[in-house]
Design a protein around this nucleic acid. Sequence first.
DNA 1: GAGCGACGTTAACGGCCATTAACCGCACCT
DNA 2: AGGTGCGGTTAATGGCCGTTAACGTCGCTC
Lengths: 215, 215
Amino acid sequence: MSNAPAPAPTSRREQILKEAARLFAERGFHGVGVDEIGAAVGISGPGLYRHFAGKDAMLAELLVGISERLLDGGRMRIAEGGESPGAVLDALIDGHIDFALDDRPLITVHDRELDRLREADRKRVRRLQREYVELWVTVVREVHPEPSEAEARAAVHAVFGLLNSTPHLGRPGALPGRTDMAHLLRRLALGAFGAMADGAEEAGGAGGAAPASGA
Amino acid sequence: MSNAPAPAPTSRREQILKEAARLFAERGFHGVGVDEIGAAVGISGPGLYRHFAGKDAMLAELLVGISERLLDGGRMRIAEGGESPGAVLDALIDGHIDFALDDRPLITVHDRELDRLREADRKRVRRLQREYVELWVTVVREVHPEPSEAEARAAVHAVFGLLNSTPHLGRPGALPGRTDMAHLLRRLALGAFGAMADGAEEAGGAGGAAPASGA
DNA sequence: GAGCGACGTTAACGGCCATTAACCGCACCT
DNA sequence: AGGTGCGGTTAATGGCCGTTAACGTCGCTC
């Protein structure tokens, strides 16, 4: 309950959340004042309190929202099931890349401001994150059974770091465009997972276990 | 006689910086009060002003310090020159991993609080960061000449994200120990760079394509 | 054509927090 | 002894900022 008020497609709430995400990403939760957030959507200061209980509530809704969307997306892709575990992993990677490229500010805020939440919300977000990670770990281990679970989990975290690196990129166009970037990130991620396996089996079977599928 | 006030090697300043780094990493620059930092080193509150001009000064010294150490380390390893470009890249990676594993808080603060600096300091830090990246780009392109410079640069950023992922790891020991972690990260990084190259040449060589050199 | 609820506005209030003031004691030198 | 200065202390001070109050205005429905 309590949800589904938003009748309109892009309600005021969503507009506020979007701007808040951008500002939080740029200057940090504590670095942004409510007046700024208000100004960003054309209203000023305390007007925000008609839409949110407080500044904390905005952050909470942002973080929970991201985590849920990531997890739901992951579950969906797994449920759809590809032709092989490798295809599912590809789908997970592509999904995460879309997210990282399209919602940079959210990604930034996501792993930066978690501790500013109230205990309850923080636990909820952590739970969602953990489930998302475990989703990946499961799939990764189907594709690459050799490494230990601890290794696989660490590798998943590392690949998240890799995929989430886009926000750190400098403004200038000294970088590939969106499409090229997506392809590059996908390759890098697959390469990393492949190397995780290669090292673990030590067999020297460079074959890479035919990790990918697509294209 | 008072117990060793420790005028020793690790001066009060360094002690303060270390604790400040930890706290900034945990709760963010704005999230930490000077009283907390003071308490962490046994003195309280404004006593810090005997050692630093202000809270900002601590952050500035931290960020400049990290950036300089990273860059110097990188330059040194390049100057030493390995037996091959691949060996140099290995050295860069190992160096960065040591840093990431030993100075987690610093790494966290490093790419989180950059914008809280005064214009001058921020520019300085950015310059150092950029030089460090370019160092890597140069070496990477010697090992893997095929990809464009833009791709190589993006890949370097991504690998930084991968290597810097350690701070995000949960407390529990559900993860590899330091040594295993270092080996794993190294493999992942090399795998990513190898995949960057594989994709660029389109050779279709599914395997690791003998990415680096090292062991 | 009155009433009401959604949405804003501006003006306090109150707390937190970085920074400064004013003051202290010990170590060390002469 | 006497002075100097470094490293601390506790008590203001002053500003920023989240939040609340009190008050207006549409636009809608009965």
